[in-house]
Amino acid sequence: TNFTTRQLTELEKEFHFNKYLSRARRVEIAATLELNETQVKIWFQNRRMKQKK
């Protein structure tokens, strides 16, 4: 998935405060950013892996 700059900014901002999202928060973010819930979930999984390295 190619994310827009706005989407990436918002996802990174959320990640800064929360490494893990509740389902409710994931649904909320997905709706706000016009993404589906799975895209948000996978982005967070990938971002956590990236941070571990």
Rank of each mutant, 00 (worst) to 15 (best):
V40H: 03
R47L: 01
A30Y: 04
R26L: 15
N18I: 02
T1P: 07
Y20C: 14
N2R: 09
A31Y: 07
R6K: 14
K41R: 11
N18D: 08
Q7M: 01
M49A: 13
V40F: 06
N46H: 14
F15V: 03
R48A: 14
E14A: 11
F15N: 05
F15A: 05
R25K: 09
V27Y: 11
F44N: 05
H16N: 09
Q7V: 05
Y20F: 12
W43A: 02
L11E: 03
F17Y: 12
N18V: 01
T5S: 12
I29S: 02
M49F: 06
V27W: 05
N2D: 09
F44W: 15
A31E: 15
E28M: 09
N2Q: 09
Q51I: 12
A24Y: 06
R6W: 15
Q51L: 09
N18R: 08
T4I: 01
L8F: 03
K50S: 14
I29C: 10
E10F: 09
R25C: 00
K52A: 10
R6G: 12
T32Q: 13
R47M: 08
F17C: 12
R6C: 10
E14H: 09
K52Y: 14
E10A: 12
R26G: 12
Q45R: 08
F15D: 00
L35C: 10
K13T: 04
Q7S: 03
K13Y: 04
E12V: 03
L11R: 02
Q7L: 03
K52T: 13
L11H: 04
T38E: 14
E14R: 03
F15P: 02
E14T: 04
R23P: 14
A31W: 05
E12D: 04
T38Y: 11
L21P: 15
F44L: 04
E14V: 06
Y20G: 07
T32C: 10
S22L: 02
S22G: 08
R6D: 13
A24R: 12
Q7N: 00
L11Q: 00
K13L: 04
L11W: 07
V40T: 01
T9M: 13
I42K: 10
F44V: 02
E14P: 01
K52M: 14
E14I: 06
T5N: 11
R26N: 08
K50N: 15
F3M: 09
R48K: 08
L21R: 02
E10H: 11
V40N: 00
K53Y: 09
Q51Y: 13
T32N: 14
A31D: 09
A30G: 04
R25L: 05
T1D: 08
Q45H: 12
N2A: 08
Q45E: 15
L33C: 06
T4R: 01
E10P: 02
F3A: 00
I29A: 03
E28N: 09
E34A: 13
Q39Y: 07
T32L: 13
L21G: 01
L33W: 05
Q7R: 02
T4Q: 02
Q45T: 09
L8V: 13
N18M: 05
K19L: 02
N2S: 10
I42Y: 09
E34S: 12
A31N: 11
E14N: 06
T38L: 10
F15Y: 10
V27H: 15
T38F: 06
H16Y: 06
A31I: 05
T9C: 09
T9D: 12
Q51W: 12
I42C: 09
N18F: 02
A24G: 09
R26K: 08
Q45S: 07
T5W: 08
A24P: 07
F17S: 14
R48M: 12
R48T: 11
L35Y: 00
L35D: 00
E34Y: 04
W43S: 01
Q51N: 11
F15G: 03
N18W: 02
K41T: 12
K19Q: 15
E37Q: 07
K50Q: 15
T1N: 15
T9A: 15
K19M: 11
W43Y: 01
Y20H: 12
F15W: 07
E37P: 08
L11N: 01
R25F: 02
E10D: 04
V40S: 06
K13R: 13
Y20L: 09
S22E: 03
I29Y: 02
Q7C: 00
E12M: 05
R47Q: 07
E10K: 08
R48V: 09
N2M: 06
E28I: 04
K52F: 08
H16I: 04
E34N: 13
A31K: 13
N2K: 13
F44Q: 02
L8Q: 12
L35N: 04
